[in-house]
């Protein structure tokens, strides 16, 4: 009990959760309600991403949603009544999967911008 660490999972789950209400709202409105036909074609995506603030918002969304999803999955898996060893496996597992997800998201953003000649492409070169 002495070396017990306090737990921050719930805290960050809540903080990212509240952030996500805003970011998901923005994301849904921007991509499905404002966009013509409910979804953008490739040229429209490039035009949309020409704004660096949009890119930053999308990346913030990517990071919060990944953190939130990974903490949530960890919590759900812990509800299987795991042994301490398996709990450690799950914790490292979600860190690795979450890290890979964020890396993939960054790479994808770069790849999309590299495809088109978006003015902000230089950010990722």
């Amino acid at each position: 009990m002495k070396n017990k660490k306090s737990s921050w999972g719930w805290f960050w789950q809540s903080v990212t959760g509240i952030l996500l209400i805003l970011l998901v709202g923005l994301h849904m409105i921007a991509h499905h309600f404002v966009a013509e036909g409910g979804i953008r074609d490739f040229q429209q995506v490039i035009a949309y991403l020409s704004n660096p603030i949009i890119i930053l918002t999308e990346l913030a969304f990517l990071i919060s949603v990944t953190v939130h999803a990974m903490l949530g999955m960890r919590s759900i898996l812990f509800d299987l009544g795991l042994s301490p060893q398996w709990e450690r496996v799950v914790t490292y597992g979600v860190v690795v999967i979450g890290g890979l997800t964020v890396l993939y998201g960054f790479w994808l953003t770069y790849a999309i911008l590299a495809q088109g000649s978006a003015p902000t492409a230089f950010l990722f070169r």
Binding site: M1, K4, S6, S7, G9, W10, F78
Partner: peptide, 12 residues
């Protein structure tokens, strides 16, 4: 509070 502040404590 330290007793309650645990993965399997109040946050669970």
């Amino acid at each position: 509070l330290h007793l309650a502040d645990d993965e399997h404590g109040v946050w669970r």
